[in-house]
Amino acid sequence: MSKIWDLRARLYDVCEGSDLRRGPAKADLFRHMRSRALFVAVGTGLEIKRFPPGLEIVGIDISEAMLRRAEPRARRYPGPLRLLQMDAAHLGFADASFDTVVTSCTMCSVPYPVRALQELYRVLRPGGSLLMFEHVRSRNPVFGLALDLMTLWTRLSGTEMNRNTVQNVVAADFRIMSIESAYLDIVLAIRGTKDAPQKNHTQCEAQRGPRGLTHALTVR
């Protein structure tokens, strides 16, 4: 699969980056990044210029070609930023080693999204932030169907357009704090956290988030 991403790296910034439109919404989300931060699937590094300055950041990606393109952007970042080639589903970091974990159009691309999210959960410290800028399947039946149809061919190049990422985030045990719409109910800015281990089940249930959120989060 990393071969496909190596190929896509060539035209990624022009055809897929969508930086002009989504940049400000991403910057709004990345404002919440704190040191030490892990950026999962850094791609060509388009987002690096949107990171708050002075943080200690590790950016990973499975594709060598993507990372090569990200290098000059990483060098321009005003702070320590390391790029590593790594699979999101098998992170080589100790448990609870990051304060923030960030993804951007990542969960449409990793082959096993829940497995990857469980890894993100493992490396995030309790109380740390999960920040995700992701596209998901629309709840609207017409747009949902369009995304299902698109997935028939985008899947061949490594992208699933119809994932239920919000449900996957919950399945990986994160607590969702807020969701903002960046484009309809398809492109979302999701903020979550990893709760400290709970002793008591009732307390845990009470922390699942505001009432009504679960309904809005079932993005299908």
Binding site: C15, E16, G17, S18, L20, L147, Y183
Partner: peptide, 12 residues
């Protein structure tokens, strides 16, 4: 897409 966004142009 470079101007208006990839999903924003493709889906509707």
């Amino acid at each position: 897409a470079p101007l208006l966004g990839s999903i924003e142009t493709m889906v509707p």
